[in-house]
């Protein structure tokens, strides 16, 4: 399988007519507020370096205004960078010609938007096939593919509805179907589920995870919600004021928050669901008959231990061979949030 990872290197974005003049000052440590007050330019992104893994979900997280949307829009260059590179399959997207960029957008990327951005004058099916219609697919073929994906997101039978006849959750399913119909390697989702209420949001997350099991796309998912980030992200990068403050797996971030800003973020997290048994596992075997699969969450492990009435268990790999052991004490210790950073 081709490597569909994306390398973001030394990316800077300064909004304003002469952004490039201020890169040096920002490098030398000028803050976002100072840049805005003194020079009337807005610091969007500062020296971003993220290596987005192929066929995995990369989450970018941060509070409002931290630069998430700005970041994701550099991948298909809806926003021009001030300096830096975005490398995909050996090519710098920031240097592509207009025509190449258009083809790249058509064939390699698809995007889902926070406010859905459906075409109000088109029916559900015509919205869904918009991307491949742009590419010049025949009507019959386009309809067939669109129908397939509408069915996959649970919208069979709604083909002839107009967006304003659907609920928000259904509209975003159309948005997702439209992106999937493109069959692109890169799927970009800018707060795609943020406008939906919690139950529907969980629902959409499940649909996405289910589809990803078989599609293996490189997904860049933006959210300001840590629970969503931890549930979806194979890798998470946290932005603040246009800078990456920490990146790694969900577990790494929860266990070792880089600073107080991130500690604040992870304080409320259900650690039992994020941390894996492998993290608290010791080399000693538990010397019991209870076996817990590697990669299980602490919550699941604790439940198994209690149900079995055991105080320790073996951790086994996919083939069933023991690779270590856990105790109920270590498990529960790790589930309790440490007092401070």
């Amino acid at each position: 399988m081709a490597d569909n990872g994306i390398e973001v290197k030394n990316l800077y974005k300064i909004f304003g007519p002469h952004g490039d003049r201020y890169i040096q000052m920002v490098e030398d440590g000028m803050s976002k507020d100072e840049l805005n007050a003194k020079h009337g330019h807005v610091l969007g992104l500062k020296n971003i370096n993220i290596s987005m893994p192929s066929a995995k979900i990369q989450v970018i997280m941060g509070l409002s205004g931290s630069g998430k949307s700005t970041m994701i829009r550099h991948i298909n260059r809806l926003i021009e960078p001030t300096s830096g590179e975005v490398i995909y399959q050996g090519q710098d997207i920031c240097k592509m010609s207009k025509a190449d960029l258009m083809n790249f957008r058509r064939e390699k990327t698809a995007m889902v938007f926070q406010k859905f951005a459906l075409l109000p004058h088109r029916t559900v099916i015509d919205n869904t096939l918009f991307g491949i219609e742009i590419q010049g697919a025949s009507r019959g073929q386009a309809e067939e593919r669109a129908k397939h994906w509408l069915k996959r997101v649970g919208l069979e039978g709604y083909e002839t509805y107009y967006p304003n006849q659907l609920s928000g959750g259904m509209q975003q399913r159309v948005g997702l179907a439209r992106a999937l119909t493109n069959d692109a390697d890169i799927l970009m989702m800018d707060e795609a589920f943020s406008a939906l209420d919690p139950l529907i949001r969980m629902d959409m997350q499940s649909i996405l995870l289910e589809l990803q099991e078989e599609l293996h796309k490189t997904i860049v998912f933006i959210t300001h919600d840590l629970d969503e980030a931890l549930r979806l992200g194979d890798k998470i990068a946290i932005l603040r004021d246009g800078e990456v403050v920490q990146q790694g797996t969900g577990q790494e971030i929860v266990l070792n928050p880089a600073d107080a800003y991130i500690s604040d973020f992870v304080k409320e997290v259900n650690r039992g669901r994020v941390i894996k048994v492998d993290t608290v596992m010791t080399e000693n075997s538990g010397n019991t008959t209870l076996r817990i699969a590697s990669g299980s969450s602490l919550e699941d492990a604790a439940k198994r231990l209690i149900d079995a009435g055991e105080t320790a268990a073996d951790v086994v790999d996919a083939s069933g061979a023991p690779i270590g052991g856990i105790t109920i004490k270590a498990t529960i210790d790790a589930m309790v949030t440490p007092a401070t950073h």
Binding site: N76, L78, M102, N103, F104, R105, R106, E107, T109, A110, M111, F113, K115, A117, L118, L119, P120, F130, G131, I134, Q135, N182, M188
Partner: peptide, 18 residues
């Protein structure tokens, strides 16, 4: 015309004429 919708058209690689 809504900027978000235009951005979506751009993101899907629509040419100016399209």
């Amino acid at each position: 015309v809504d900027k978000d919708v235009l951005e979506a058209a751009d993101a899907f690689g629509a040419s100016p004429t399209q």
